[in-house]
Write a protein that binds this DNA or RNA. Sequence first.
RNA 1: UGGGGCGUAGCCAAGCGGUAAGGCAUCAGCCUUUGGAGCUGACAUUCGCAGGUCCGAAUCCUGCCGCCCCAG
Length: 334
Amino acid sequence: MARDAASVCNDLGVPHYTVNMTEEFEEEVIVPFVRDYASGRTPNPCITCNRTMKFGHLLRKAREIGAEYVATGHYVRAAGCQDDTMVDTFVNPVAGSGRTYLLRGKDKSKDQTYALYGLTQDMLSHSMFPLGNLTKHDVREMARKVGFSTADRPDSQEICFVTSSGYRAFLANRGVHPEPGPIFDTSGRQVGKHSGLPFYTVGQRKGLGLESGTAMYVVALDVTRNALLVGTREEAYSTGCQVKVLNLIAVQSMDGPVTGTCMVRYRGKETAAQMRPCGMGTALGVEATVDFQTPQFAVTPGQALVFYQGDLVYGGGVIARSSSMQDLLPGNQK
RNA sequence: UGGGGCGUAGCCAAGCGGUAAGGCAUCAGCCUUUGGAGCUGACAUUCGCAGGUCCGAAUCCUGCCGCCCCAG
């Protein structure tokens, strides 16, 4: 990776710096990642990394060397408002005089706004997304033409800091040694045993090893009983959820219910929804409640809910609990 | 031990004389800047065991073993 970057910078005649942020990464990405899993949630470390590393520490470093913006290869667009029209801040950086918006990238299949919903106004107004108006295909084409060594580097990767042995092994190495416990179906019958709650996630199907005539999915993790709750695919759908640590991008504050669409997971399909703010003093620090127009599969605590209005990212937050869990986890989630 | 039923892959299960459906689970690949999901492919030389009938049986007959149900 670092090699590739250096090589491309060299081709471009751009100075290349290396800064060591392993300490920060450990504290701000990995530690919370492990803590979340250990508490029965399913975190998305990429979202944390974007907010703390790429647009946090990296932007800070950039400013130290006199750079005003950070440019990344995310497939998203940022825009400022001039008069009444939005102006792409990459095309016209000075446009960000008022609020800076985050919009889906042109390549909808590659859109990464979900992973950037946590950025602040300061971060967004000092970011450039040159790939926002291109498709992945275009980008590779351009890279090939210019002769970048990275032109054909494969897309995929899993959690960057987790090896091929998988996140479960990673957690174990990090001292997560949970107690095995029972697996219950939605009628309360014990149907099996689990090897430790952190090793499962809502919506999971594989690895349960249940002897059932039909496919079973994890419906919820019951931390207080150290039990895994499973059900049929239908039983894993939710009509809504509660969201905390809300980060609003399109507006300063949410005064009432808003309508739009939302996504409940990275690369998920969006669904029409309504989001309304919760008053003060809500349990769990819940800040908003979202109702889906059509039930969503495997709405998972710890994952992000990102709310959209058209291509615009309205804001997002962390899923605290889904509606279907209300019945299954009688008031226990602390 | 009088009557009835059933034993097909780890689990569920079709087939009832013509040469082993399907589903779950499992494994592999694809997909993918999170976890999952999804998609594709693989997966019983063999039908509780032993004989017999037949050109041919998981399917018919006999015996044995193991379960279940109803009566005593």
